Amino acid sequence: MEYAAAKSSICRQCGRSFSPFAPKPGLKLRTREEAPPPESSSIRGRFEDFWKRQRSSIIECFECKRKQQVSGAATSTICPACSAHIDLRDYKITSGFSRTIRTRGDVHLTSRGDLGSSSVVCRSALIEGRLRGNLHCDTATINYSGKIPGRISARHIIVDRKADIHCFRSVRAESVEIRGRMSGEIVAQTMVMIHKRGSLEGDVTARAITVEKGGMFSGQLVIGQVGLTQGELLQEQEPAAATGSESNFPETAPRPLPAT
């Protein structure tokens, strides 16, 4: 008989050490089956996960600009042409953030976020917080009220209805849609559209501008090619005609003098 708390003992017959709680040889022990991973809490979540894995998108390399098709579930990939790493993750900023971002995913700046990165490159951006850095993306949607000291450049910019922004730096884009209130300078390559109840106060340089009924625009407007200088607007003038004081007789070639 051994002590109940003993972890090992010695056999009195053969002198070998053994554990009183060790299983006997040939004895099968029951193993607890592992529980399956919990499923998504809602049908909508499961559908979104399934759709994200099934869909695919075409991305462009940052270095060589080569396009390729990737799965929607991928978080990164390698360019087959130049072997450069391409980030595909989405970023959600809920507090102060100052690191550089370069991704082909989306960036969501929440109302409590403060983006102070020197360079942010992404596919699309939703701005609901303070932007103090430089943002470059394909589509930027602004739903924020306040001052924006950062720089925004995109292919298409949308100022939402609830937005009321004041941009310290010029906003550059191919096209701009204004549905809320905005003050600042806009340089667009194609068109600026001010929707109903939209308001824009500032200088605009674009090829065309559309103001719907109920919209308001106040500022200086330059319609034409972006980057056109004043010298290019002036037409070339032809040289002035010859004055009457000049001789109208044709010039004769000089003749050599006769030899004496």
Score class of each variant (00 low, 15 high):
176 V>C: 05
152 I>L: 09
60 E>L: 03
137 C>H: 00
93 I>M: 04
108 H>E: 06
166 H>E: 05
121 V>A: 00
173 A>H: 04
112 R>P: 04
180 G>D: 01
95 S>E: 14
99 R>L: 14
71 S>W: 10
9 S>I: 06
182 M>N: 01
118 S>C: 08
162 K>V: 06
16 R>Y: 11
14 C>S: 07
21 F>D: 01
121 V>S: 03
213 K>A: 03
201 E>G: 05
14 C>Y: 13
257 L>C: 10
40 S>C: 10
55 R>E: 07
220 Q>K: 08
177 E>G: 11
192 V>L: 08
166 H>K: 08
147 K>A: 10
33 E>L: 14
36 P>M: 10
115 L>S: 02
99 R>W: 09
202 G>F: 09
105 G>P: 03
83 S>C: 12
199 S>R: 04
115 L>I: 08
92 K>P: 05
171 V>M: 15
193 M>H: 15
101 I>W: 03
2 E>I: 14
260 T>D: 10
139 T>N: 12
205 T>P: 04
20 P>L: 11
32 R>N: 07
176 V>H: 04
71 S>D: 07
56 S>V: 07
106 D>I: 12
150 G>A: 06
157 I>L: 08
156 H>R: 13
185 E>I: 11
223 I>Q: 04
161 R>H: 12
110 T>I: 05
35 A>N: 07
94 T>L: 04
199 S>M: 08
5 A>N: 07
115 L>Q: 02
30 R>M: 11
1 M>K: 08
141 T>W: 11
209 I>K: 01
176 V>T: 02
79 C>G: 00
170 S>T: 15
199 S>I: 06
113 G>E: 00
112 R>T: 15
111 S>E: 15
144 Y>F: 15
122 C>Q: 01
210 T>N: 09
196 K>I: 04
147 K>T: 15
220 Q>S: 14
100 T>G: 00
141 T>G: 04
44 R>D: 09
113 G>P: 01
142 I>K: 02
164 D>F: 09
118 S>D: 02
109 L>H: 02
117 S>P: 03
112 R>S: 15
23 P>I: 06
110 T>N: 08
35 A>Y: 11
58 I>R: 06
